[in-house]
Design a protein around this nucleic acid. Structure first.
Lengths: 109, 109
DNA sequence: TCTATATATATGAATATACATATATTACGA
DNA sequence: TCGTAATATATGTATATTCATATATATAGA
């Protein structure tokens, strides 16, 4: 359980905010959602297809997510496989679903 | 309940990502955490003290949060009171607590 | 070793963001 | 109506982000 009765200290906020900030990008969220959905590690090519963007751009986004420690990669001969390693980011996706649900169907909240 | 077995569509991601992105700023997260913690609406002066930044900067941040529809304001004579109106952003704070907990105490996940 | 496929990086221009300082507005009480 | 406390905005500069294009690297197979 997480302590919830006191404010998050500024050090933590300054450390974690950039991680969330970097994840909160349409294409990067798409990648995270895809990797979560697929459960198993996926290649850059597969991710590129799912993301609907160019290979170079997807590779750039993967790098950003990896630098933040949200995903990891391992090479498998020709391919490089990516998967999510920080499950806390999945709450971001849940946050979006809930936010969206709230906006579109207010009676659900 | 939220449907979780298909990918969030890009339109939604493009709409919601900026909201999260704007919230994911140390000072703005502090403000959201404070307002959530206090439960009742708080004045700019109170928020400024809690945030530990200048009045002008806090006012700028409040404006940004308000523009995103995350908080609302109402005037009470001299003061302007702010409160959270979009509860989905509270998941961000939970996300941070969990992320932080994961980093500091890995055995908790 | 040469080639093809898969992936990664460099670079630059356009745009956005952060933050400080100065100034403006608002509303009430004297 | 004048002053003052509370809040908001304007502006500029430094810095960061985005996204595209071109190019580089890595691996396996012929």
């Amino acid at each position: 359980m997480v302590i919830d009765d006191e404010l998050i200290d500024m050090d933590t906020l300054e450390r974690v905010a950039p991680v969330i900030r970097n994840a909160a990008h349409p294409l990067r969220l798409r990648i995270l959602d895809y990797l979560h959905h697929e459960k198993e590690p996926r290649t850059v090519t597969e991710i590129t297809e799912a993301a609907g963007a160019s290979q170079a751009i997807v590779s750039q986004q993967l790098r950003i997510l990896k630098d933040q420690g949200l995903i990891s990669s391992k090479r498998d001969s020709h391919n490089v496989l990516y998967c999510i390693v920080d499950p806390s980011v999945l709450l971001l996706l849940e946050c979006i679903r809930r936010h969206d649900g709230m906006c579109v169907k207010p009676h659900n909240m």
